[in-house]
Design a protein around this nucleic acid. Structure first.
Lengths: 145, 145
DNA sequence: GCCTCATAGTGAGGTAACCTCACTAAATAT
DNA sequence: ATATTTAGTGAGGTTACCTCACTATGAGGC
């Protein structure tokens, strides 16, 4: 088996695990009545606090237009509030409402519990090792384009 | 930082890397003119050979109706062929056409090259370690529901 | 053999999660 | 002052699923 094939197999394994993780994560927040994309946005807002919609889109790595959409959906549900940016009249700020903060905390808890259950099959050393390796993979790609 | 929080962070890191991998994988096959879902189906057919649409759906872990759809799309492009199952007149068999097999091989190559480039930042020991740990995570969940 | 239930595939209709393009208004650079 | 860039969003589109319902067929039980 060549290196390429090993790496493809590794990629497939990676994908398979991440798919399972994604599915379980989705189910863990489903009772809260929000979708995965909304949960992601809520997570960014919880960590970052008030921010521009464009910044939210950057964090989520989606198109600005899609950022608008997820904020729309959350606003309809009363989970976020929009306000004009005093520093730039083109821009809009978005922040979690108090209800949104409650949901955000519930999301965080549900996700954490699910993740703990998922990774529970690894011992402490393996978890640390996995975190280390994943950290390497997360670095900006040093390969030339 | 509690164990739950560490695990949630690990899950997020996992998701972040898998998102990158997914995006790069998508780009690597984009020149072939097929979508990620189609590529997945092609991959299963390449490995498994002729099979029922229901089985394909099982392998892909999608609803049977969605299996029908991806086969429809591939059939329109001449990449798969449908035939009745001689053992069960309710069932339909699907297999790659010769053109489909060429595309399947191209997909495999593109993906492998991309995966090699992605994991190239890890040394051999880390790759093996990662594969070992991922293998643990891939096992059926031994936790009681 | 007959009946009931399960299975296989698919038509119809739907949602979620993105995307691009185009536009207006505002900010920045020259 | 003018040209270019930026921020948000309307309009329209694609992809990748999903559920429900239906027909035809197969399996199991009596």
């Amino acid at each position: 088996m060549s290196t390429q094939e090993e790496d493809e197999t590794l990629a497939e394994a990676f994908w398979s695990v991440s798919r399972t993780l994604r599915h379980r994560s989705h189910e863990s927040i489903s009772p809260l009545g929000i979708t995965p994309a909304q949960a992601r946005a809520i997570g960014v807002l919880r960590r970052h606090g008030r921010m521009r919609i464009s910044s939210l889109s950057d964090h989520l790595r989606i198109a600005p237009r899609s950022g608008t959409e997820v904020v729309d959906a959350l606003q309809v549900r009363g989970l976020v509030l929009r306000s004009p940016d005093p520093d730039d009249r083109r821009a809009t700020l978005v922040t979690l409402s108090s209800q949104g903060e409650e949901i955000a905390e519930a999301v965080r808890k549900a996700r954490a519990a699910e993740a703990e259950q998922f990774f529970d099959r690894l011992d402490e050393a393996d978890r640390r090792e996995l975190a280390r390796i994943i950290g390497l993979l997360r670095r900006p790609d040093t390969q030339q384009p």
